[in-house]
Design a protein around this nucleic acid. Sequence first.
DNA 1: AACCAAGGCAACCGCGATAGA
DNA 2: TTCTATCGCGGTTGCCTTGGT
Length: 329
Amino acid sequence: MDVTNSEFSDHSQGELLDNQDQMDLRRGPWTVEEDLALINYIANHGEGRWNSLARCAGLRRTGKSCRLRWLNYLRPDVRRGNITLEEQLLILELHSRWGNRWSKIAQQLPGRTDNEIKNYWRTRVQKHAKQLQCDVNSKQFKDAMKYLWMPRLLERIRASSMNQNNDHSGATAHVNNNNNNNHNMNVYSSSIGVQNNYHSAFTTPDNSSTTATSSDSLSAQDYYNTFHAHDNNNNNNDVVLQSAQTGHMGYQEFLTTPSTYFADQDLMEIDNQHQKTTTTTAATATMLIAQVTCGWVVRTHQRIYGMLRTTCGFISSSSNTSPTLMVFN
DNA sequence: AACCAAGGCAACCGCGATAGA
DNA sequence: TTCTATCGCGGTTGCCTTGGT
């Protein structure tokens, strides 16, 4: 493939290059040699000033191209591999909050790039919307995400966590090791404080067990169940209940799935104790659980559920737990 | 084995924001 | 204040892979 771009121009940004430079510029996939040149140069001189960096490194690429390659692929902390269930959950939740703010969303998933998340959204999430024959921004689709997809992800995360605990006792020890590096870690660090803690969570070697697979897709029956209910009754709560009763989740499990029952004021109350910033929605609970089950606190996340139940007025055997349990040692 | 369609993803493009001369 | 260079973001494109026929 001839990747030389004789037509390249980016004059709109004032990134002017002389004609000879433009003739020589390469486009398309990067070669190993180019990657090495970029890595070596940045290792010795640091990043920034991308146009001059490209020239000094002897790369026949635009500064933009170099920056993109570095940020999205070569950076040492880029996290490769499939999007995990926890990450999926976070993406769904954060997108519902922030929309297509890919960069902002990516900041909450250390090692993931905005490009990767954007691609995930466009290929996986929009596929579901297409299956539903509805717009990805429609209420119909958002309901499907909130009441089916996200609870399903939670269930799978929980199941995966259980398996890890049951299958190998080392899982707990590992989590504890992580926690040792994060004394007094606070689950309610929420979107602002998540990043540091998240990183250690993602280093859990067993997280591949929660990697996304094709089975993440909602089945046609799921859609039917949800929207058949929707057709019969426009009351959202009824839709939820019917979905729970007819879907894969058991009713009791459904009741204890945070995104289905959390009231805004409940979480606002909790969230206010830890940050005075954003309005917290029911879906925040989903994110918190995702964080919890990410690995740092697999052993204790059942207690979190208990606390959350208590917070929402669900009296259970775990109701003697209190919000203080949200701080881990 | 060959062809085709769909999916996944890396890379590119355009534009607005920002910094600094 | 204006102009230019650069950065960063979101949208889009197009190539490669995979799965189905």
